[in-house]
Design a protein around this nucleic acid. Structure first.
Lengths: 246, 246
DNA sequence: CGCGCCTTTGAAGGAGCTCAATTTAGGTGG
DNA sequence: CCACCTAAATTGAGCTCCTTCAAAGGCGCG
């Protein structure tokens, strides 16, 4: 970051403040008035860059902070003693990582960058302190935790009662929606994760994921070129999900 | 409840207060000092009895309160438009229901009593208010939400990377542990849910669950008589989980 | 340009599902 | 209190979807 030396520190700090962050509608500052956002700014102690494939935290690490993704993306996974692992989620900009650590004061999963990324470090003690003073922050934080629970239920539904192609369709529609919320194209995007990681997340083997992609392509639902995805028939994908009448 | 008419009302109310509740170590009051528990008591507006098979809340209901289970047990499930449903959890005494509703102000799943049950109604607005004043309550509430997230990750692991018998073994060990925490026998208990509900939770068909139970019985791991379970070989069940070397 | 990693595709096998019949338990009313 | 009735559980047989094993092709990076 050579810029750092030529740009005045103040400018740089304003650029990275919550109040100036274009992710604030997706992140912790949502619903706060400008004055409150300034308070939150002070709380966000530091930022941390994580290179691709590196851990933001590991299962077992003592929990000290939660993290808001400023740039890049992550996966979280749980690893069993026998080596099996399960990807529990993919996180994009504006989303919050580390909530799993609150319950035991230790993280219970690994968070790994899928690309070079940057997070805002939010010391948890201070977040609790500030949410005792700022009602809207407290409420937004609770909403974020609750959203995580609802999301997890969706994944359980997916893993527990959908077939392979339905799972992948749901995954693609979910990615599309999240890219859209970030101002990107709903129909064309670049997946940061491998087929193996998608498979782990969806409870499928990588070959099954690959075959499902090929099938979607044959049927004209999507155009797939490795990690580059173009959705050609969104209604078609949605139909795949609900058409499984009992 | 014939006692109700002969015991003075005051006594009865003390009996149902958080401070007198033998579930407080498992529930929201955990970690609070006596004075703080009294404040929580005032917050717990009312109690509600739910008969077997009845809904505590439904998906879509506006969210107003969370619920602590005083007696009985529940399941939560998500239902897709095409009729498929997924049980997302079973809840026992001292556990909290309704956290899914915070994110959108509407519940996103159904909570159904598995037996005649009773819950403490905790109006959420007032809980947020009180947790702004009582640090330990705030922290305990955050831990409870986080625990739910961690639990869900465990279920995702189960659904995504375990085979049928491993899932059932994990389920039985989990039930055993939760019964133990409530002062019941670790090895002998009565399941409140049907094979179909267990199957939905574990991402299996009821026949598969039944067959796995029979298999465990043949192998001397458990004694099964319908819903009554006696665990004969806990280490054996645990071995089933981790012995799946890659 | 070559090497490693990721992806694709094929063929065979198996775990769990579907369909179906039987048994058992629990609740209800005579 | 017993007979009936319905819901839940068990068990069997065949089938399906996904996995496993294997090989080849493609992309990106040093």
């Amino acid at each position: 970051m050579q810029m750092k030396s030529v740009i005045p520190v103040t400018t740089l700090e304003i650029k990275t403040a919550c109040s100036q962050c274009n992710l604030r509608e997706l992140c912790l500052p949502f619903g706060l008035d400008p004055n409150e956002v300034d308070q939150l700014d002070e709380l966000v102690g530091s930022r941390r860059k994580i290179k691709r494939q590196q851990h933001l935290y590991r299962s077992g690490d003592t929990f000290e902070a939660i993290y808001a993704i400023r740039a890049g993306s992550f996966k979280t996974d749980v690893i069993l003693e026998d080596g099996r692992d399960q990807v529990t989620g993919f996180q994009m900009t504006g989303e919050v990582l580390g909530l799993d650590g609150i319950s035991t004061e230790h993280h219970s999963c690994n968070a790994i960058a899928l690309e070079d990324s940057e997070v805002c470090v939010i010391p948890f003690g201070r977040l609790e302190e500030l949410s005792r003073q700022v009602e809207s922050l407290q409420h937004q934080f609770h909403k974020i935790m609750s959203r995580e629970i609802v999301r997890d239920h969706g994944v359980m539904m997916l893993l527990g009662s959908m077939r392979a192609e339905e799972r992948l369709a749901a995954f693609l529609l979910n990615m599309s929606q999240r890219f859209t919320a970030r101002g990107f194209s709903p129909s064309e995007f670049h997946l940061r994760m491998t087929r193996d990681e998608i498979g782990s997340y969806l409870g499928l083997k990588l070959e099954t994921v690959s075959r499902a992609f090929s099938r979607f392509q044959e049927e004209g639902l999507v155009a797939v070129q490795q990690k580059h995805i173009r959705i050609l028939d969104t209604p078609g994908l949605k139909r795949l999900l609900n058409h499984h009448a009992v």
